[in-house]
Design a protein around this nucleic acid. Structure first.
Length: 589
RNA sequence: CGGGGCGUAGCGCAGUCUGGUGAGCGCACCUGCCUUGGGAGCAGGGGGUCGGAGGUUCAAAUCCUCUCGCCCCGACCA
């Protein structure tokens, strides 16, 4: 705890709590942050942070700063307003959809509002990093990010304007990045732990960021919008966008399967229809879906008991845009929706199959003409596919590929942070082209990593993790005030003692004194709602015993403490409330 | 972008179906008195273009059309 806290009077603190839940709010963090006057909505997915919310955000930022500085990162500030030119260089101007705000200035020049800062920071690196002596270096900022999200939700959980800590590391080579990455990874674990959260690092999909490896740090929560799997017996943890499940491979006696046979199936199109029509289980069908990948037709084939992961497919195809193929595209290639199939397909059509289709069983597949299917279709005999990979959506209960014994469970979580090994995506010659001279005087390409934490989302996540029916339970490290002093009644001797306590504690802690002329119930309810970790009550009754009461919000523990020992007792409570940093799943540095 | 829900005082709501009473209730807010261990009491008071525009009607919060905003589910998503 930093020495010297601040003093605040409730009557001057701009706190206007609501007794009732605003109807727009559903998730606990949204409800309590609104009710506690921490935030105020401005537009969908756009919030003001009011004084209490601002204080919490600042405390989170300070923790982040300390951890970044501790691993030799340097803080900078980059602009939100970016020339489109820079974003065209890296092609992200074209690759990113409508979530990137684009507009023109008065001279008709194109600008964007930065959703991240790879372009700007890489431009800085290009200007100043000339020699191997300049490397490695990591720059970071805590800055506004703007994204026109399709659907903001859950209060602060997903918004369109927010504060992000984004760090960018520059390295002479991949080995150096690999050496640095665990330091950042571990710093992230410490940041979240210091904010009172036990995060679960998982293997993540790199998405449009590109790169060679990445982790997301998840807080399990039913209100989280990410899904990830955890293995019941090993350390495998991965986002469902990337997770691979072990597929069961049923087997028939292939030699006894009769030749493929044409079957008339008028109007039978879906797997559900087919199951009913043929009366066999879904794993015996081949599901074929037509996609338009950057305007090129691609057929994706998977066994009927799986679903296609469009994220995996897009990653495999390196496609920027992947959508279901429009009807006209099918017609152009002489294909029929509902009866698509890898069997008897014209050679010029690209097909990607999930490895589940190589099971040695008799399949039912589409006929590539209306109202026709084939049965007794065998992989290798009746059809084959050149491109076979994993494009299956992982399922709850799938086996673990890493250990081979465990079972994968799908969980929901809030993404607290994301670390990427970017590689040379932004330094390559066809993008920003950033090189340096090595000790032999030879030009080498700079290798990058990038690392983000959403500050407001982290604040909301803390509330999701730490609340009860009455309100927020701030971890002491991020609480807007550590201690609230509640005098009961307005009697002069009570007020005098309360003021005395206020000034004594205030030398070390952030303290707020509830100086309102309100009934005790009102003050207690507000203190609980607002979530101050330590409450000190001063009353006539206690005063006569020469005591005050300390109540711990988190545990409910009540300590009647001699007035003279107040500071010592609070220090003791504080020590119990400080987060524990041992036992985190650190990566070897 | 698809599906659903909601817009009446700062917050929560009733009134809308079936048009017509002076737009109401609770909380919050202001003034005074009083009170103080879990959302006190009494008295007085301020606050509304009923989301907006158009239409129907003698008459619209209420019926019709359009529109804007917000929330939830999904798609999408560093």
């Amino acid at each position: 705890m930093p020495p010297g806290g601040i003093l605040m009077r409730y009557s001057k603190a701009f706190i206007h709590t609501y007794y009732e839940t605003p109807k727009e709010a559903e998730t606990p963090s949204h409800v309590f942050l609104l009710r506690g006057c921490y935030i105020y909505p401005v537009a969908a997915g756009v919030y003001s942070l009011l004084p209490l919310g601002h204080r919490v955000a600042e405390k989170i930022k300070q923790i982040i700063r300390e951890e970044m500085d501790a691993i030799d990162c340097l803080e900078i500030t980059m602009p939100v307003l970016n020339p489109a030119e820079l974003w065209k260089k890296t092609k992200r101007y074209f690759d990113i959809g409508p979530e990137l705000f684009r507009f023109r200035d008065r001279r008709n020049r194109e600008f964007v509002l930065a959703m991240t800062h790879e372009e700007v920071v890489t431009d800085i690196a290009k200007q100043f990093i000339k020699s191997y002596r300049d490397l490695p270096v990591t720059l970071y900022q805590i800055q506004t990010k703007i994204r026109d999200e399709a659907r903001p939700r859950g209060g602060l959980l997903r918004v369109r304007e927010f504060t992000m800590k984004d760090a960018y590391s520059f390295h002479p080579d991949f080995d150096d990045l690999d050496r640095f990455y665990p330091r950042m990874f571990n710093a992230y674990l410490r940041v979240f732990a210091r904010c009172g959260l036990e995060s679960i690092p998982i293997e993540a999909h790199s998405g449009i960021m590109g790169g060679t490896g990445s982790h997301e740090f998840m807080l399990p929560s039913e209100y989280g919008e990410d899904r990830f799997v955890t293995c019941s017996s090993c350390s495998y943890r991965a986002n469902t966008e990337k997770a691979v499940g072990k597929k069961n491979m049923p087997q028939d006696d292939v030699s006894s399967v009769p030749p493929a046979e044409r079957v008339s199936t008028p109007g039978v199109k879906t797997i559900a229809d087919l199951k009913e029509f043929f009366n066999i289980s879904s794993e015996r069908f081949l599901k074929t879906v037509a996609y338009s990948a950057d305007d090129q037709l691609v057929l994706a084939v998977i066994r009927g008991d799986f679903d296609i992961s469009e994220t995996k497919l897009a990653t495999y195809l390196k496609a920027v845009r992947l959508e279901l193929a429009p009807e006209e595209m099918l017609e152009k290639h002489g294909l029929y929706g509902g009866f698509l199939s890898p069997v008897g397909l014209p050679k010029n059509i690209r097909v990607v199959a999930d490895d589940s289709v190589t099971a040695e069983i008799a399949f039912v597949a589409g006929g590539n003409e209306p109202d026709v299917h084939f049965k007794n279709v065998l992989y290798g005999r009746d059809f084959s596919v050149d491109e076979i990979t994993d494009i299956a959506e992982v399922r709850d209960g799938d086996g673990c590929v890493q250990c081979g014994k465990g079972v994968l469970k799908i969980r929901r979580g809030i993404e607290l942070g994301h670390t990427f090994k970017l590689g040379t995506k932004y330094t390559a010659s066809d993008t920003m082209d950033v090189t340096y001279l090595d000790s032999g005087g030879k030009p080498q390409r700079v290798v990058m990593g990038c690392y983000g934490i959403g500050v407001e989302r982290l604040m909301a996540a803390v509330v999701e993790r730490w609340h009860d029916e009455a309100g927020i339970i701030w971890p002491i490290t991020v609480a807007p005030y550590h201690v609230v002093i509640v005098p009961i009644g307005q009697k002069p001797d009570v007020m005098t003692l309360a003021e005395e306590c206020y000034h004594r504690i205030g030398g070390k802690y952030d303290v707020i004194i509830d100086d309102r002329n309100e009934s005790p119930g009102v003050k207690f309810k507000d203190a609980d709602l607002l979530g101050f970790p330590i409450r000190v009550v001063v009353s006539q009754k206690l005063l006569q015993q020469g005591a005050v009461e300390i109540k711990v919000r988190k545990t409910g523990e009540v300590i009647i403490c001699p007035t003279s020992e107040l500071v010592e007792r609070i220090e003791k409570v504080e020590n119990q409330l400080l987060p524990n940093l041992t036992g985190l799943p650190f990566m070897d540095e």
